[in-house]
Simulated scan of single mutants.
Amino acid sequence: MERTTEKDSHYNNLEQMSVSDILKNINKEDRTVPDAVEKAIPQIEKLVTIVTEKMRNNGRLFYIGAGTSGRLGVVDASECPPTFGVPFDMVVGIIAGGDGAIRKAVEFAEDDTEQAWKDLSAYRINEKDVVVGIAASGTTPYVIGGLRKANEKHIATGCIVCNSGSPVAAEAKYPVEVITGPEFVTGSTRMKAGTAQKLVLNMLTTSVMIQLGRIKGNKMVDMQLTNNKLVDRGTRMVMNYTGLPEHEAAELLIKYGNVRKAVEVHMQAK
């Protein structure tokens, strides 16, 4: 397969550029990413649909990846509970090399074709679940092995890759291919490819959670109240839905723990 993510940058002699030119050229490349994602929306829609279907039947979403791709999966998974109020194990991010690899690269962890399934098995993964492999190159052995084994076990599989015709996409039943092309720094897929993957992950979990009723109107009514900013935001939301003054809305919110429950209790009491 031809890996466009590994092709030479459109720019050369980067060390001779002014800071201004470096920034402008990186930004010029970054502006192409949303267009690449837009082309993949039909594929993303299919993946969102199957994940929603599985989660409505108590299924979970697992991400597997290595390096930057793995870290992006971990970030997206870790943000779902505070944003949408879902259980911490409903969306799970697994990175090759274990949690230590989030901060420090683990040499050759991505080259083990057997380890992903071992990592997934620790969660008692089953046919109710979905496994999404994240790999900019589309060639990561860790991801290929995990998806292949999931397919053998009749578990739904998807992927997010940034090259066309990749082995990872060939294994995934619901592939998402966002073709971002050469990076500003040749081969540095933490740049455009990483941005594309982050955008798709945002679209995937946000769309699924909306379908699951975790958003009301355009508000995060199930968000966790983990800091003062979120308590203030939640208070304003309760005020908006109920017409209560600020101090009463805040008391109701703190008592019941989230916006949805506070509003429901107030409406029932009316």
Rank of each mutant, 00 (worst) to 15 (best):
V92D: 07
V51C: 07
F62T: 07
A269R: 15
T226E: 02
S78D: 02
P87W: 02
A122Q: 14
V238K: 10
E114P: 06
Q115T: 14
G65D: 05
R60D: 05
F62Y: 13
A170N: 12
T5G: 14
A150W: 08
P82D: 04
A101K: 15
A172P: 05
A150D: 09
M267Q: 10
F88N: 14
H154Y: 11
Q268M: 06
T4I: 05
V161L: 07
E107W: 11
N58I: 01
V178D: 07
F184L: 12
R3D: 11
K54T: 03
M17N: 11
E127A: 11
A101T: 13
H154N: 15
V86L: 00
A269P: 02
V143P: 01
G98T: 08
I160P: 13
V176F: 05
L244W: 09
A196D: 04
Y63T: 03
M237S: 07
L61H: 05
I41R: 15
E110V: 07
E171V: 11
L230M: 04
G133P: 07
T189E: 12
G165S: 11
N57H: 09
G213E: 01
G234E: 05
I215F: 02
G73P: 03
A101G: 15
C162I: 04
Q115H: 07
V178Q: 07
T52Y: 09
T206I: 04
E110H: 08
C159R: 11
M239P: 07
M17V: 14
C80D: 02
D76R: 00
K173C: 10
